[in-house]
Design a protein around this nucleic acid. Structure first.
Lengths: 222, 222
DNA sequence: CCCATGAATAAGAATTTTCTCATTTCAAGG
DNA sequence: CCTTGAAATGAGAAAATTCTTATTCATGGG
């Protein structure tokens, strides 16, 4: 079943939600502030996020913005006491998928959660639009990488190489394989283009993401 | 822009909505009962449907069910006076994507419409990876065009522009729209880059595929 | 037919990407 | 520590892309 992250600082509401979801067959985790939320999203995969706007530290809208900036596409439902029309519009335009004001009926929340999960159901045989490894995301559509929340443009060759690595994290590619896959068959085997391009990617992604396996080639850290 | 079907028997509300949408750049059509609604959906393609539940003849929920049974997947937003929790749950479980109760603020409706249209934007890989128009195909993954069976590489800018045209065949894009969509907001309005790039694409695709609409912009022939 | 405006094109400057080569740095084994 | 092959890097040439400017061409109205 689906896994839901509840970002809510009031422990009573959080527990109420978690219990309700459990009864309906969903699993959940609770984050009581923004940093916990961000950490949990990084390390574990959730299908949906319930977001309270009234967090102690940072505003919930900032959490929303940060998540979207990092390229996360999971559905986010804002659940808050703020009834103001400007908040609603800001939330929805800012990347939330739904906005519910307290007090609310659990049945309605549940129905809205189901709507979101329904629309997320990806047809079989299709792939995701964004590949994530560590702190770096690769948007296959815009052909940009997102590193620490910042968009980085990748030239064609660099992107092709990055995509290959991101589609096979942990796999060791020899220089010959990379030449073949990224440059095609038509190439001078005495060239060190591969080395140079690995260097380019490291400069953009950080030097630790792609590691060299001496004598064998390169590999994307998992 | 997007095309919205408003199913609403109260002509004043319908007109209010239509006017509001128009001001925001959406086009719309109005159906005042269920049979009109069904007929319009069959004959024309809408991007979104606003559905009132209190129709004179048939219940709006039946219209919803019938549309979903026929396999229509367009987003449907229920907009109704019925505030009852059971109606809400029935609507959302019955295939609606959102449920708004009257009285409502137009800004909120608009924000929710945008949420739906945003989520309709199909990620690469979920639909065919190749768009065809006439004798030209566009491979969204390899970013090549195929013209008369021959692969033609497209540089980034050309490809982005081509993709925009291919995703909306027949639609007239003004130069400003193209600048915005392909180059982003950061641009000199006195430039004729758009003209130049249309020229580049014509050179590769053949001169007749993209036609100019004098005084208005360019359009992909269907 | 002529004019005015919009559109197309040619040419080339500026910029970015791509790739090579030479040199430096590194790592493992003796 | 030294050697040696492997890997990384710096510099820059070559090539392709991107964009501007100036000019030519086309179209529709008077």
């Amino acid at each position: 079943m689906s896994h839901i992250l509840i970002v809510e600082d009031d422990p009573r509401i959080a527990a109420f939600l978690a219990k309700g979801f459990l009864a309906k067959g969903f699993t959940s985790a609770i984050a009581s502030d923004d940093s916990q939320a961000m950490a949990l999203v990084q390390e574990s995969r959730f299908d949906l996020l319930i977001l309270d706007l009234g967090l102690p530290d940072k505003d919930g809208l900032e959490v929303l913005a940060e998540l979207r900036r990092q390229g996360h596409t999971l559905p986010i439902i804002i659940l808050t006491a703020r009834d103001d029309i400007h908040d609603k519009v800001a939330g929805l335009e800012g990347g939330a998928n739904d906005y519910i004001t307290k007090p609310f009926r659990f049945e309605e929340l549940l129905a809205r959660v189901r709507v979101q999960l329904r629309s997320t159901a990806v047809p079989v045989g299709t792939t995701a639009d964004v590949l994530h490894v560590g702190k770096v995301s690769l948007n296959l559509h815009t052909r940009q990488a997102i590193v620490d929340g910042a968009n980085v443009d990748l030239p064609a060759r660099e992107f092709t190489m990055a995509e290959l690595f991101f589609r096979h994290p942990g796999h060791i590619f020899s220089r010959e394989q990379l030449l073949e896959q990224v440059w095609g068959y038509k190439h001078d085997p005495g060239s060190n283009v591969v080395d140079v391009y690995v260097g380019y990617l490291r400069k953009k992604f950080g030097s630790h993401l792609i590691e060299t396996v001496r004598g064998r080639g390169y590999r994307l850290r998992t």
